[in-house]
C-alpha cells in the first residue's frame, strides 16, 4: 500500500510540473484540477492503511472543493464575474 502512495505522490509532482511550466493560464488550471482528483485517491489509500473511515469524509470534501475551484477558474477564464 505504501508503494501505491509513493507512486501517487510522484504523479502529483508530475502534474505540478505542468502547473509551474504551463505556457498559458488554462494549462495551469488543468494541472490544479488533476491534482485535486488525484488527492481524492490518496485519501482513499490513507483510509485503507489506517483503517479509519474519516479519511473518506476528507476525500468527499476535497472532491467538492476541487470541483468548486475548477468552476471558478473556468468562469474567470471566460472573463465574467462570479455572480452572473
Amino acid at each position: 500500500m505504501h508503494t501505491f502512495l509513493l507512486l501517487l505522490i510522484i504523479g502529483t509532482f508530475l502534474c505540478l510540473y505542468r502547473v509551474a511550466m504551463g505556457p498559458t493560464p488554462p494549462d495551469r488550471a488543468v494541472g490544479i484540477d488533476t491534482i485535486g482528483v488525484m488527492v481524492v485517491g490518496i485519501c482513499g489509500i490513507f483510509g485503507i492503511i489506517t483503517g479509519q473511515d474519516f479519511y473518506l469524509n476528507v476525500a468527499i470534501a476535497w472532491a467538492l472543493l476541487s470541483f468548486l475551484g475548477t468552476l471558478a477558474l473556468a468562469k474567470y477564464l471566460e472573463g465574467r464575474g462570479f455572480d452572473e
Binding site: 469524509n57 476528507v58 470534501a61 470541483f67 468552476l71 455572480d83
Partner: peptide, 26 residues
Amino acid sequence: LTPGGGFAGGVIIACAFILLMLAHGR
C-alpha cells in the same frame, strides 16, 4: 465523534450555495 465540526461543516454548506451561484447566477 469524527474530525470536522461546526466550522468545517458550515464551510461545506456554504460551498453548496456558492456552487449554485457560480453555475446559475445570483
